[in-house]
Design a protein around this nucleic acid. Structure first.
Lengths: 331, 331
DNA sequence: TTGAAAGCGCTAACAG
DNA sequence: CTGTTAGCGCTTTCAA
């Protein structure tokens, strides 16, 4: 690989001049500029990003920590983050944790200022203590999760309100025995969505039946299917289910169909995330649609501000959402 | 941030000694080792990966270039690559190209040896010329695409044979008028799958009807739905469709259902990729299932070998696949 | 076994 | 406008 020095020798100038040309600094005598450019082309010079960053004290990377990229929601989110990061000349490093606390903690600990300029993290099982131990020294933003009261920037949607909207919609469609799938004491977002669900029920003077709250450890189709199967064996099965993500919902829809239930006639289903599949499933899925692009941009911009030296109080940015009403609740 | 020098001063030894302890080299006098370890703990020292790599001439990163992370297949693939890369102490940098040639070319050009130790690339529109221009100087492996005859390691499945298997299955189920969705002259894999489809048809002495080959520029649900809609307006619509990925297939299934066709009774559908959704859709989707975990591991291992100095002839690794037979062809 | 010092490729003072 | 030079933090000869 050609270095700055090689180019300088070939062009018969100093490294500084070459560096100036490469970085577009100050005024270089046209004659020199031409020679440098020739030498640059001749050697096929490409700057050593590592060395440059070592010198500049930045790395050019930001990290994104997610449970699993194979979950469409996180795939879509990661895509958005990469796009947004490019706007600030950042490349994105992605780490997966499977939502396991130890893995999350380990990843957090590995994130030093020499490795990345900032981190966007989507915690699943992290606790407050995990943060205070490692003052990593880089800007961080938390996604989704917000039960955690740590003094760190946060961007997400109002989960309580989103759940309320979803359940109100179900109530509005005449449903009275509404279940949820996805309860999980380790997930802050689950707790919030459950709260919203309860609010909507009491608001409408509907009873809260504990047997209608189905837990899910993971949020894949199979978990949704298993939960739905359990709900349908109840002496008095639900007439609607609000699921905490689209995969749970789609799994639940399938499980219902397998047992001869029609969605939405016998049982209505609402999902969460509005991943691409939800618009094309049979029936298509009514779901909460967070503005993922806005989410990704807000997170990256926040890192950018902090990296630029903004030390203000931790921010909490609320991203808008809508309820996409589709066939799974309206038939 | 504490540097090696800070630690050395605190411990009253030279940086060399600290470096030795940190890297577990040679024998350090126990007394010194203890003092160094204390100093390490006291300062909370963490090595500056950038500086270390600058010195060692490696970066600790590999790049993964994909069209879009929001396509579940690539999300699953990326997850596998990250997992496999961890086994070699690599972090993974992900770049998206949207399958646009200029973006792919630009990404390729940006991949220098100072930025990443290797690259796994999933090209969509890249041409041979795009590779020879930038001898990037890092190990690369190509995924999927193989029409490109460039002297670069490749790992993928046998697309021709996979398509054959899929179409033979359809023929075996008694279908006679079989369409494909996903033809695209810019995609090498599409060309191969089309060839396999043709092979299977001639093998069974079935006629090749040009109107049954539906093109798709992108491979999302909407493209599959649009293509299916077109096919169904044919004077003599197909009785089966082989789609070049699962999203196209699921979009096609929905479009068929919207027009009153039953899958598989009226029209059978086969997909490609076996993404998680395909097992839970209604009907569940018969699809070609490449071993994605094996694919990811093979790619990363190949990079690892090359980075270790293996200069042998370019390899071409074939990953096994199966046909997952589900309801969309068997009802 | 440990220290001193060179240098990876680059940028930025500071001269000139 | 351009050259010289000192590091960024680390590893690694080469001596001691």
């Amino acid at each position: 690989m050609a270095t700055l020095k090689d180019v300088a020798e070939l062009a018969g100038v100093s490294v500084k001049t070459v560096s100036n040309v490469v970085n577009g600094y100050s005024f270089v005598r046209p004659e020199n500029e031409r020679r440098v450019k020739e030498a640059l082309a001749a050697t096929g010079y490409k700057p050593n990003v590592g060395a440059r960053n070592l010198r500049r004290g930045r790395t050019g990377f930001i990290a994104l920590m997610v449970p699993e990229l194979s979950i469409p929601y996180f795939g879509e989110l990661a895509g958005g983050v990469i796009t947004a990061a490019h706007g600030h000349d950042w490349s994105v490093l992605i780490e997966q944790t499977q939502g396991v606390r130890d893995a999350e903690r380990a990843t957090l600990a590995s994130l030093g200022p020499h490795m990345v300029d900032g981190a966007i993290i989507s915690p699943e099982a992290l606790e407050k203590a995990d943060f205070t131990q490692h003052a990593s020294g880089i800007p961080m933003v938390l996604l989704g999760e917000h039960a955690l009261d740590v003094p760190i920037d946060h961007v997400g949607i109002d989960n309580v309100r989103a759940a309320q909207v979803a359940v109100r919609h179900l109530i509005g469609m005449g449903r009275r025995r509404i279940a949820v799938i996805g309860q999980n004491p380790n997930r802050g977002t689950a707790t919030q969505r459950l709260a919203g669900y309860r609010d909507a029920l009491s608001e409408a003077d509907l009873p809260q039946a504990p047997e209608l709250v189905a837990t899910a450890m993971r949020y894949h189709h199979s978990d949704g299917a298993a939960a739905m199967a359990r709900l349908l064996t109840l002496p008095e099965p639900p007439d609607a289910v609000f699921c905490f993500n689209d995969m749970l919902a789609l799994g639940a829809v399938r499980a219902a169909a397998e047992r001869g239930y029609h969605v939405p006639q016998d049982i209505a289903v609402v999902g969460f995330d509005n991943t691409e599949h939800s618009a094309y499933s049979l029936p298509s899925l009514t779901t909460i649609a967070p503005d993922k692009t806005a989410l990704a941009h807000a997170a990256v911009d926040l890192i950018h501000h902090r990296a630029g030296g903004d030390n203000g109080a931790p921010q909490d940015i609320q991203i808008p959402f809508t309820l996409e009403v589709r066939e799974s609740t309206t038939g």
